[in-house]
């Protein structure tokens, strides 16, 4: 292996960028284990009382439960809709395909606050603010691109002739998709579902607009908490979110990587 000054400089630079990216995390995790009732860094002593506080306070638990519930529903709805859309978009010869694709991916590009204001105005009119249906609907729109992209990638590597073969063997169109297409694109679908869940689970902006005192997701509760009482429970909650989403994203990445190895 070559070791020159250029290489050392590159390593140093990369390490610096890496540090910059994970620095907030490195602050939050120690903070969650502080023994003081304030967010002072570095902590002067260690304890797990803020975790105990998190798991004993019904308001935090409600928020966690809401987030898990919304996330799970969004994962299901967005995966079903996104997979169906991806199949349709890769199959259709229509000239609207490009436009539809752009439209479905738009939530990734349009500033979230713009989406949030639009959603707020609409939900206000239809009484959807602070409802489970409202949260799932809004988050599904935001999560769709994260399903469509990996599923479309999987479908590009899928040989259409396999589906034709299933049809001529006597499978109905749905039977062919269920027995042949879906098992083949499963890694893309699974990683789409995980990303959809994560997208919903740590969504803040739209959630802030459509929340109500009766239905708050975890990030909303954290935001409220940091502005009212600067209590280190929020650091414990943040650490839990970090661990949880990291595990899910790693899982999604590995399912895709394994698929690429198999092919």
């Amino acid at each position: 292996m070559r070791t020159g000054p250029a290489r050392i400089a590159l390593w140093a630079f990369s390490a610096l960028v890496g540090l910059w990216l994970i620095a907030p995390t490195l602050v939050v995790i120690p903070l969650s284990f502080t023994d003081k009732a304030s967010l002072v860094f570095p902590p002067s002593g260690w304890s797990t009382r803020w975790y105990a506080n998190f798991f004993s306070d019904p308001r935090w638990l409600d928020a966690l439960f809401s987030s898990l519930q919304v996330g799970a529903l969004v994962a299901v709805v967005a995966t079903v809709l996104g997979t169906a859309a991806a199949i349709a978009l890769t199959r259709s010869g229509s000239r609207w395909v490009k436009g539809s694709y752009g439209l479905l991916l738009a939530p990734m590009i349009v500033p979230t606050v713009v989406v949030a204001i639009g959603v707020y105005a609409l939900f206000l009119q239809y009484n959807l603010l602070g409802t489970l249906l409202g949260f799932v609907t809004a988050h599904t729109v935001l999560a769709l691109p994260f399903v469509i992209i990996p599923v479309t990638a999987s479908l590009r590597g899928f040989d259409r002739r396999l589906e034709d073969a299933a049809l001529i063997c006597g499978a109905t169109r749905w039977g062919a998709i269920r027995q042949v297409t879906l098992p083949q694109i499963a890694p893309g679908v699974v990683s789409g579902a995980l990303f959809a869940f994560v997208t919903s689970f740590d969504e803040v902006v739209v959630s802030l607009f459509i929340q109500s005192p009766y239905l708050q997701t975890l990030p909303v509760k954290m935001f409220a908490s940091v502005t009212r009482d600067t209590d280190p429970t929020i650091a414990a909650a943040a650490t839990l979110i970090i661990v949880f989403t990291t595990v899910l994203v790693l899982a999604a990445t590995f399912t895709t990587a394994r698929r690429n190895r198999v092919r």
């Binding site: 040989d159 002739r161 396999l162 034709d164 073969a165 299933a166 049809l167 001529i168 063997c169 006597g170 499978a171 109905t172 169109r173 039977g175 062919a176 042949v180 098992p183 083949q184």
Partner: peptide, 20 residues
């Protein structure tokens, strides 16, 4: 008649076996 109701068998150029 859709393909699955035609009682026809087919062999494809690139085999089209179900890999899973």
């Amino acid at each position: 008649l859709p393909p699955h109701r035609r009682d026809i068998g087919m062999v494809f150029q690139h085999y089209a076996l179900f890999p899973h």
